[in-house]
Design a binder for these strands. Structure first.
Length: 480
RNA sequence: GCUCCCAUCGUCCAGAGGCCUAGGACACCAGAUUUUCAUUCUGGCGACACGGGUUCGAAUCCCGUUGGGAGUACCA
């Protein structure tokens, strides 16, 4: 049996680091066993999925070097690899109807409102929250008549009422036991006629000849449904393996509020794909000889699915940065130069509008923008005190602005841009009855170390809040 | 609430009953090298969640407690 594995991301939002993590494991498993690695797009949620997001997934997998043998943009003979296209081929409905015919699924005509009140009643009563199966016993002829009459409906899976599902996940010591009565009669076909994840994934894994489904732990609870679905549909089920979820520092499931989860972010930041992949691989997997820096090919050589850790690892950028440094320093001069150019290009694009009018030669750019690149600036004390002000006043002004700006930066959805900064500082000047001319000069010197600079608020915006706050504080110390 | 999963330094990983006085990496601290910084090197700090079993012997097996996580959608 040749191994066939897949990743099946949903194209909602940015390509996710969790997809890369699971992708890496699947990729290694496939390569290790001379099998195939498939990418399938699961876009059965019509309201949330976008084509742009799918494109971003392809691009980021390619960037990482997680090259799939079959997928939407590379083809393959088990396609199409995008579920929305498969919906149009009527693939899923056929299986849902087969289940109806067999008596393993049924029509349900509950409205969203009905379901909602059912839920709130159960919550109030402290009961488990589940669909109460009110249409499960409906006569099939009657149900079909309602369907024919145009009543909106879904198709639900008939889950056994008693007994339990026992599944041996190769990563866990004990078999996973789950009582059927804990499991809902899952919707298989939605009222829009599209399949839910459960139906689509099981059907496609079968049709695409997937032998091992290696996925995140969040799916463990719905495993019995997938096992049942395979059995009722007469499929030989793939082996299901559940690996730990990536975590935030507080151990919750990794989220973009607490971590950079967007793969495009890493690319934009200049992280090297080798470093990211290496880092991801140290999460949950280890080399028998303890090595922690290795290439993808080296990893494949020793990869062992049974050595994957089930406990969800905390995703901590610190170690990634260390690895990134190692990889970066090993770059050939040519590649390093290319990386530098890339980083520089971005900064030039950002800063050019600020210095454009002050330029006479290309090289002027370096001197003009020096304060933006420097970690710190050293303003001259005399320059910090404009004509008509004394040291104490300049210091008080810097302190006030620093406070205002700090609060602004810490605010929930603050925008660090020119208009908001200008409004902020001008309002302060007005309140304190400070002349903008003098105030702005003090700020300019504090922020850039010079009496001449691009416009103040553009400077602040381009500098970013961390540097602004730091430099405002430093200047105050100079005035003591 | 209910169900399921998990549990070794701050973090990532090693440890498959005696090789464990628990090992490595990152981070942190100290020292050496470096004109400085970074790199590199050396050293230090630092964990088997708790309680019961099983066993001659438990980080390792079992049970319980506690803690954490996930699921509980016509989202995936």
């Amino acid at each position: 049996m040749t191994v066939r594995v897949r990743i099946a991301p949903s194209p909602t939002g940015d390509p996710h680091v969790g997809t890369a993590y699971i992708g890496m494991i699947n990729y290694c498993f496939a390569r290790k066993h001379g099998g195939k690695f498939v990418l399938r797009i699961e876009d059965t949620d019509q309201s949330r999925c976008t084509e742009a997001s799918a494109q971003a997934i392809y691009a980021s997998m390619r960037w990482l070097g997680l090259n799939y043998d079959e997928g939407p943009d590379v083809g393959g003979d088990r396609g199409p690899y995008v579920q929305s296209e498969r919906v149009k081929l009527n693939i899923y409905r056929k299986y849902a109807e087969q289940l109806i015919k067999q008596g393993d699924a049924y029509y349900c005509f509950c409205t969203a409102r009905e379901l909602e009140s059912m839920k709130s009643r159960q919550r109030a009563a402290g009961e488990p929250i589940m669909y109460d199966r009110r249409h499960r016993g409906m006569d099939l002829a009657e149900a079909k008549a309602r369907v024919a009459a145009g009543d909106p409906y879904v198709i639900r899976l008939k889950v056994p009422l008693e007994g339990e599902n026992v599944y041996k996940d190769r990563l866990r010591k004990q078999p996973v036991v789950k009582a059927w009565k804990e499991i809902d009669d899952q919707v298989l076909l939605k009222s829009d006629g599209w399949p839910t994840y459960h139906l689509a994934a099981v059907v496609d894994d079968h049709l695409m000849g997937i032998t091992h489904v290696i996925r995140a732990e969040e799916w463990l609870n719905s495993l019995p449904k997938h096992v049942l679905l395979n059995a009722k549909l007469g499929f030989t089920a793939p082996e299901y393996v559940h690996v730990g979820l990536l975590r935030n520092a507080d151990k919750s499931k990794i989220s973009k509020r607490k971590n950079p989860t967007n793969l495009m972010w890493y690319r934009a930041q200049g992280f090297l794909p080798e470093a990211l992949l290496n880092f991801l691989a140290t999460l949950g997997h280890s080399f028998p000889d303890g090595r922690e820096k290795f290439t993808l090919d080296e990893l494949i050589a020793v990869f062992d699915l049974d050595r994957i850790n089930v406990a969800g690892p905390v995703f901590d950028l610190t170690k990634l940065r260390h690895l990134q440094g190692q990889y970066f320093r090993e770059l050939s001069p040519e590649r390093m130069k290319a990386e530098i150019h890339r980083a520089l290009d971005e900064r030039v694009d950002q800063l050019l509008p600020l210095v454009r009018e002050r330029m006479s030669f290309g090289g002027d750019f370096i001197a003009q923008t020096e304060p933006f690149f420097a970690d710190t600036v050293s303003p001259h004390v005399d320059d910090l005190v404009p004509k008509g002000w004394d040291k104490a006043q300049a210091k008080a002004a810097l302190e006030a602005v620093q406070l205002v700006v700090k609060n602004h930066a810490a605010a929930e959805n603050a925008v660090w841009d020119v208009p908001s900064l200008e409004a902020l500082v001008r309002a302060l000047a007005e309140e304190k009855e400070w002349q903008p001319k003098q105030l702005f000069m003090t700020l300019r010197v504090a922020l850039t170390g010079k009496r001449e600079s691009p416009p103040l608020f553009d400077t602040m915006a381009a500098l970013g809040h961390t540097k602004c706050i730091d430099r405002l504080g430093l200047a105050q110390q100079k005035l003591r």
